[in-house]
Amino acid sequence: MNDEFYIGWEAKAAPGIGKTLRKAVVCLLVLAVLVPVLLAMSQRMIGVSVFEWGAVKSFTGVLRTQPYPHLLVPRPGTNDYHTLQSVINSPASASAYHLVAPWKFGLDRASIATFDGKSVSLKGTLIYRGNQTMIEVMPDSIRATNTASTIGLPSVVPLGRQTLLGEIVDSKCFLGVMNPGHLTPHRACAIRCISGGVPPVLLVRQKDGPAIYLLLVSADGKPVNKQVLYSRA
């Protein structure tokens, strides 16, 4: 009968126990290598988005506060596609950048109301994913510029009542501040961000083709952060 006995405070374990122990240690180290490889490889939630944390850049454009604060930046170059079949098909003459505040807050619309419709310059950090662009605006960096606003409001095209299936995401995190920034693990953060005024976006993923981003607004073009929070779909 094997009468080996392990005593931890002795310098060396008995040979048979030592042999078992070495095997167990090898098994544990294999686990410590295999499990992270498998788990890291099978992650599916991580997308392609960027938050240029620490890189502050300057932007100029026309500031709009409705429905959510955004900056319209004219696209240079000539644009002669107004002859094409529909408004949607012609490339827009300006890009719209969503504007948000640092941390989990949207820009306070009351404090920037004086800039509404004016040409401004501002400093901030870029957040982008696909063809969506957002700027985390540095506090108090918005300045009115002398140039007059040259951009007209885009014309509104009613598309009728539609039913869409998607996920409501907080645009700031999903567009790049957090990656992955959606589904259950992100739910609490999305609730805090939308509660803080970050524009809620309905993300409609398509089977083939790019995901589309729909800013959620009320019928009269007002923010719906609170309604989104209390709908609790």
């Binding site: 992270p36 490889v37 788990l39 890291a40 992650q43 991580i46 501040v177 957090m178 990656n179």
Partner: peptide
């Protein structure tokens, strides 16, 4: 920790 982090960063460079 190192294997999980490095592999994630290599496979998904845009991860936060």
């Amino acid at each position: 920790l190192v294997i999980f982090s490095v592999l994630t960063k290599v496979l998904f460079p845009r991860v936060t």
